[in-house]
Each structure stands twice: as structure tokens, then as C-alpha cells.
Design a protein around this nucleic acid. Structure first.
Lengths: 331, 331
DNA sequence: GCAATTGAGTTAAACGTTTCGCTCACAAGG
DNA sequence: CCTTGTGAGCGAAACGTTTAACTCAATTGC
């Protein structure tokens, strides 16, 4: 009895204890119809008292499914992604799936290497926020369901937030607070979500909001000189609209160091509502993405794809909401 | 040729293409000595042109090793852990190991469930920052190398920072800046690292630093009423020493809302140097843990344990350093 | 020149599942 | 009474590796 716990009981052990064949054990455990109720009971009992757990590797070899999924992210250090990761892992576990992590640290080659590692381990599907603008060739070869997250690519399932809507919400909020001349610290041109945020904002009230200036900035929040100069001169802008919270927070930090007060001297808004948005001074007004929901839905979608159901709805777009805090002044 | 890429080439395919037996392929690929240089070449060539990758599940079944490790953390959302996770994943990948994530969200039962999921998948080892004060019974049953991270438990390998040293560094810094009366917002009594930080600080200069008050606070930075009151009254303390950065930042936020200026009215120090420490206002003076090194060393240690080498050094303690920023005033 | 040794390669078993096809008993239909 | 059908269960093959045991030729030692 002591060693029944020690090194994992096998299906064979269950079979002998229940007095049936291994085939019957397998059938009983997997709910196949061709097993009588008496035998089924015996098997279930035996399995329980032996603490039997199917050997995943063996199962995988026979069935080709591992009940593991891959999660490929560009940067766990970014709270946006760590929240996402938390949601994904949690939902996966609730479905009995193991989440295998790859953090490419924004390097396309590391990402590729990671994908290949996942493929080698035979994960059943992949949730992926790609760093490269176009998806690498490898994709055909890895041949598993993929659900993109946050960054759509033609021909792929994706779940992401309604970025354009966020942009519009921001425009509306700007107007309501009397800002009609703004500066843009937009995200990278090759990241689609950045484009949509920008487009949502600019096209919402083209005749009532003027763009005083615009500079493109990386999503990591590092401000090039051009951006810093723009922040200092401002050319009449009373509000700066940042491509995401990291950018907004960097800008706030920079302004603070140069003795310009937010929001007294200039207002600022972000996008994402990462947890940092709540702790900076002043607290940042921003657009909240339903991070938990995005992660959860992505896993659900992937799970459906894995169960053969060809997803007809390759794109899932979730609503965002404005969260008002202290970084916008009403004028 | 088209379908040689499609559904993963097997060792058999390599064997026929190279004109040898599968055993020889296996031996060649695993660097066994009993294969001639001519055959070895042929095998290597065939494997490369076929894009052969060993089927991990099959390998696992035969050898009992999966080349995957588990990473069990209490809260990915906490930047301390997400940085750790990044380091762990990166190092693991460099060793050809897949990192499987469990985020228990500080719930002991979720943690247990996660460990069992990992065991079922047959991970070769586990890196674990445990939430519970004492380790659950299950442990004997899961029977794989375990390396703890940040939180030592009797009888287990651990890699963590020198918390006591951090406490001493802080005390020294306090004195250098003329603070001889301080308040303590210590971490939880049942978390060892919290105790060591506190002890390092208090016992460094017992006769030159007075503790004006102390209240125990959770590491998540949520301030109970007692703590808030203490922050407002202060009883002559010119410096508050927080159990970690989250606590320090919460305190700063609270003080700011009640119009007391940091560091003009009161100074404050944290512990951990999470990324937030850099972005709050004022930027937080704190103790930096070598997060990257902790993660890396943990993986290395685990890897050694997995390779049979019984680790003689169950505990690895890494030095910390003071990072001076703007939250301490010299008086 | 013959036995012993070595080097290079092969065959086949094993790992723990799932599943296909089979058997066997029994019931129903004619 | 014989065929056919059905429900319950079993035996064995297969999945892709690794590895122990083995063969066979060439080389060495004497």
C-alpha cells in the first residue's frame, strides 16, 4: 500500500485490482458505452483507491494530444501582459490545460525559437501575441490551432479590444473637458492596435479637435528626443494623447522633471489601464481594456478550435471603457 | 517532399533516408560512441534535411524525462514575480527546457491543484515560491526535484536574496541621512523574508535608531486602518521603512492624498526595487534584489538536481544593493 | 594462424495508453 | 431450430523513442 502512492499507479494496476482487462479500464475511464455498470463501478473504485492518474506522455503518444497549450508573449514585465498571462493560465487550468510560457522579450528570433520548442513538446494550441509585423514562414509547419491576442494578422483568429472605440471615447472625453487642441504621442506605425487607437481618436471629431503635433513612439515608453522636445514646446496643445499607459507615464515623469505640472499645465491620457496607472501621480486617466476577459475568451476560443470545431468567427472584439482619474483638467 | 515538412518526420524516416537502422539514428543523435563517422554524417544530414525533431512525448515515455519544468508563483501581476518569471523562462529556454506556468493567485488550494497538474504532466522539476506557511503533504507524492525561490522552508533547496543585509543597508542609509527615529511598516509575521528584513534593520544599530512605531502589513500593499493612522501621526518618526515596495508605494499614495509631502515632510524607503519604484513620484529609494540572477540561479540549481547531482548546497543567498533615489531627505 | 578483443551496427523489447477487431453468451426473429 | 443481432468484454497492435542484448567482421595478441 505504501508504494501504491510512491511511483504513479498505471492503468494495468487498476486493471488487475478491478479484475478486468486494461482495455475495459480505459473504456470505463473515458466514458465509452461498451462497459457494464458493474465493471464500471469496480474500475472507478480501483482507480480512486490507487490514486490513478493517466500518464500524460503515454496518452499523448497514442492520441496526439497533450492537453497543454502555449502562451507566447513579448514581455511579461509589461503589466499589460502579466495580467493577460494570469487570466490565460487561470482559465486554462480550469479547463485542465497546462499553460506553457514563452517570453520572447520582444525578440523575433527568440519568439521563433520558443514556438519551435512548443511545437516539439506537442502543445495542442497556441495563444500568441506576435512581435513581428508579419508572421514567420514557420507557421505552416507548426500546424496547430493558433489564437492571436491583441494583435490581429490577416487569416488568423484573434481576440482583442475595440481600440478604435477607445480612441473615440478619448476624443469625446477631451471635448467634454474643453480640450480642442492636442498633441499625439502615438504608438508604432507597424502595430495595428496603435493605428486603430489613433484613427479612432482623430476621426471622431475631425472638425472640433486639432492635432497640434504628433510623434511616433515605441510601446515600451522610451521617449526619443523628438518626443521630449514636443512635450516641452507643446505648441498650444492642452492635452497629450499617448499611445499607451507606458508612454503616458514616461511623459508624465519627463514633464515632472522639467517642472511642468500635470494636469495643471497640461493634461494627459493613456491607454490600457495597466496597474501602474493607478499608482502614479497624478493617477492616470485612461482606457481600460477587459484584460481578464480577453485572456479568458482567447482560451475558450482556442479550446473550441482544439476540439475540432472550426471557428467561424476568427475575430472577437471586446468593448473598452473610459476610466477617469486625475490626469485631465477641465478647462 | 512537400509532406516531409507537414506532419513531423519520425526517427524511422530519418533511418530509411540515411540507410541505417533506427537504433543507429538514435545513437548518432544522442552522441553515443558506437557509431562510425560515415554513418553519423549520413544520419545528421538526413535529420537536417528532413527537419527532424524528436517527439517529446515518445521520448518522455521511454526515458521518464520531459525536459519541461514547472514554475509556481503566487501572483504574476506583482512585478517582482513577473520579472522573476521572465528570467526563469529565459534561462530555461536556453537550456532547452520548457517552462510551464502556474499562478496560484495566492490561493493555497489553487497552488496544490497546479502542482498536481504539473506532476501529471511529468515535469522534471519545479521552481516554486510557496504561498502557504508550511508545505503541503502532497510533496512526498510528487517526487521530483524542487527549488524554492525567495521563501525558504526547512529541508528544501532555496535561492533567495540576503534580506538581512538589505535591512542593514537601509539602517546605514537612514543614519547617514540623519534619521534616528523611524516608523516601521513591516511585512507579514509569517513570511520569513519579511522577518529577516526587519531584523537586519532593527539589529544593525540598536542604540542609534529608535523605533517610534511599527505596524504589520500584507505584502500586497493594502494598508489597514492602523497603518493609515500611524502614517498620519508619525510620533516623531522622520523616516518610514516599508516591508516592500508595494507597501511603500501605497503609503506614498496615501500620504500624498492627505497632503503630506514625501520626502519633505517624511522620508520613505522600500524593498525589492520593482519596476514601479522608478515611476512613482518621488522615485523610491529601495533595496534592489538581483531578480534576474535569482531566477537564473534557481534554474541552474534545479537543472543540476535534475541531472542527478544531489545538491549539497540547499541554500543560495545573493547579495542585494541599495539604490538611492528621491524618497529620502537628508536632515 | 587461431582465439580473443574491439568497433559498428542491428534486432527487438519496453514504456503506458487507446482503439480496432474479435469472441462469446444470450436474446430475438423467422 | 437456426440465423442474426446485440451488449459486454478481451487481446493485441500501434504510437515514437531508447537501450539491452546480440551479430558479424575486422583487428589484435600470441
Amino acid at each position: 500500500m505504501a508504494d501504491s502512492e510512491r511511483s504513479m499507479a498505471t492503468i494495468k494496476d487498476v486493471a488487475v485490482r478491478a479484475g478486468v482487462s486494461v482495455a475495459t479500464v480505459s473504456n470505463a475511464l473515458n466514458g465509452k458505452p461498451n462497459v457494464g455498470s458493474a465493471a464500471r463501478r469496480k474500475v472507478l473504485d480501483a482507480a480512486k483507491t490507487l490514486g490513478y492518474r493517466p500518464h500524460r506522455a503515454a496518452q499523448a503518444m497514442r492520441t496526439g494530444r497533450t492537453r497543454a497549450i502555449g502562451l507566447v508573449l513579448p514581455d511579461l514585465t509589461n503589466p499589460f501582459f502579466s495580467q493577460l498571462a494570469q487570466a490565460v493560465e487561470s482559465k486554462a487550468r480550469r479547463l485542465g490545460l497546462l499553460a506553457c510560457l514563452i517570453d520572447s522579450q520582444n525578440a523575433a528570433d527568440a519568439e521563433l525559437e520558443g514556438l519551435s520548442l512548443l511545437a516539439q513538446h506537442g502543445v495542442d494550441g497556441i495563444i500568441w501575441c506576435p512581435v513581428g509585423a508579419r508572421l514567420p514562414r514557420l507557421l505552416g509547419a507548426l500546424d496547430r490551432p493558433i489564437v492571436l491576442i491583441d494583435r490581429p494578422r490577416p487569416g488568423f483568429s484573434v481576440v482583442h479590444a475595440n481600440n478604435a472605440m477607445g480612441g473615440r471615447l478619448l476624443a469625446q472625453h477631451a471635448l467634454q473637458n474643453g480640450h480642442s487642441r492636442v498633441g499625439l504621442l502615438s504608438g508604432p506605425r507597424n502595430v495595428q492596435s496603435a493605428q486603430q487607437r489613433r484613427h479612432g481618436f482623430v476621426s471622431a471629431f475631425p472638425d472640433r479637435i486639432q492635432i497640434a503635433w504628433e510623434v511616433r513612439v515605441g510601446f515600451d515608453g522610451i521617449l526619443p528626443r523628438e518626443a521630449r522636445e514636443a512635450l516641452l514646446r507643446r505648441r498650444g496643445a492642452t492635452l497629450v494623447v499617448a499611445g499607451n499607459d507606458l508612454i503616458a507615464i514616461s511623459a508624465m515623469r519627463f514633464l515632472h522633471e522639467h517642472d511642468v505640472q500635470v494636469p495643471a499645465d497640461v493634461s494627459i491620457v493613456g491607454f490600457d489601464d495597466i496597474s501602474w496607472a493607478r499608482i502614479v501621480t497624478p493617477r492616470l486617466t485612461t482606457i481600460a481594456q477587459p484584460l481578464g476577459a480577453i485572456g479568458t475568451r482567447a482560451v475558450e476560443l482556442l479550446h473550441e478550435c482544439m476540439s475540432g470545431a472550426q471557428a467561424q468567427n476568427p475575430a472577437l472584439m471586446l468593448d473598452v471603457s473610459l476610466v477617469e482619474r486625475d490626469s485631465v483638467r477641465s478647462i
